[in-house]
Design a protein around this nucleic acid. Sequence first.
DNA 1: GTAACTCAGGACG
DNA 2: CCGTCCTTAGTTA
Length: 254
Amino acid sequence: MEERRNMNSTAANRSNQPSSVGISDGQITNDEAESLHKKKKCSGHELKEVTGSDTFSDNGSLNKKRLHYHQEDQRRMSLTSLVAVETPSSTDAPTRRTIDLGYGSDLIYIQRFLPFQQSWTFFDYLDKHIPWTRPTIRVFGRSCLQPRDTCYVASSGLTALVYSGYQPNAYLWDDFPPLKEILDAIYKVLPGSKFNSLLLNRYKGASDYVAWHADDEKIYGPTPEIASVSFGCERDFVLKKKKHEESSQGNRTF
DNA sequence: GTAACTCAGGACG
DNA sequence: CCGTCCTTAGTTA
């Protein structure tokens, strides 16, 4: 997560900014410890995740390890990602790539899924109008300030989201109309998809980040389907397979 | 009740 | 600078 972007988006920043969306689906049950580093461009300052569910109010079956991937926003921009940056153009058409992650899961990566100008309009809206909070969460017995801003939006009637001892207040989609426009844009590129909640994250600068995690909360069901949309400056979005602990041996979880 | 888990942060190599 | 390991105690499986 590197992207020193403060509240002021410079022209330089903006010249370099696509929006992207990706989605993974299916159960992942790997036993390989091999780690897959998927470089995806994400943006810094503002990253939002749409968390879906076709399998919602489902009893969350106790498939402890279905989602064997972790995601992380890198704290730094690697040289490779710098090199990989293409020359942006506001007229570039979206590009779409489907990557087989194995075990029935796919990653669909769409660069510039929204037009340049529009993505910045959304960025500004989110930055200014979302009631961001920076909660205290609990990890490994310690409580610490979450290193990023958050806001949770969910359809009414859903089970509350809880992670790391934190239960965010659930706002409604109607509270922020532009969110529905973004959602519609997602439905358009991913026909048939349905999402019912959204966890927004805002990374204010190089020191904001999110650690490895699996998005395997029980409420997401046995085969979570996630769409992650990024606005703002570029950041890495890394996926890696979780180590499998089949043999009941020390699980490293990472 | 017991085992397993961890959306951070620090230490280490 | 970078990746990996280890922590740690309350909550959940």
